[in-house]
Amino acid sequence: MFGKLISIELYKIFRKWRTYIGFIAIGVLLPIILTALYYEGSNYINFSMRALKGSFLVVGNLLNGYLVGYLILQALIIHIPFLIVLVGGDLMAGEATAGTYRMLAIRPVSRFKILTAKYLSGIMYIGILLLFLAFMSIGVGSIIFGTGELLVYSNKIYIFPASDVIWRFLLSYMFAMLSMSTVFGLSFLFSSIVENAIGPIVATMALIIIFIILSALPIESLAWIKPYLFTNHMNGWMTFFADPVDWSEITESALVLGAHSVGLYLVSLILFLKKDILS
């Protein structure tokens, strides 16, 4: 029964054209990035390795599918939230806009199940979108550029053996899933409050932008607030591309994001259970 509810919600999600905006954006952007990297990628490698090339003879294919996957994840992950809120903001409010809220609520299915099915369908949408991103970046990148060692340019220059890369991507994408679930949870909460999808989409985007700016500002008087902003933990996936991996930092970020996701879902649930549906 619950599975049926989820499949109905997924059907509703994928019937709306706005659901495909994220896929279209990734589908258009990635070929452009891949083409640019095909022609200019060696410049990036040379720039990253310039400190070493004066003293060392360097061989090997560092411009490969793993590097492409890493660069794309790094560049796009901060923009994926804007694609996710398009769906998250519409899930509940869309029913109100379409005038189907009351009809939905009078069916012999509890409000708890309705909301949970919508929430889980939204989470599945995120999973599918991220899988598409992984396929387009790592998959297509590996077909075009091959595989090999991964060059990561962060607090150090890391070169990970090819055999040491897949698990890092796997965990990074799982972490990204958690980050995006938090963003989705926020838009879902706003969506359950109002009756028009535009409001939750814009409000979530605005809040994320405010949080990101507050996280990035190097002002000491604002430093205390940073640990409480979930946006500050969203880049935790990058920690998997360090050696050694700082598991305590990842755990802390995962707990903060997980608590936000669960908290936002519970608040949405309480609001929906108590909601007086008049439309």
Partner: peptide
């Protein structure tokens, strides 16, 4: 004449190569 060949990534100091 020098050639460095590797299936994967390798780096070798130029000095005293």
């Amino acid at each position: 004449k020098v050639k460095l060949d590797s299936k994967g990534f390798a780096m070798l100091p130029k000095e005293g190569l």
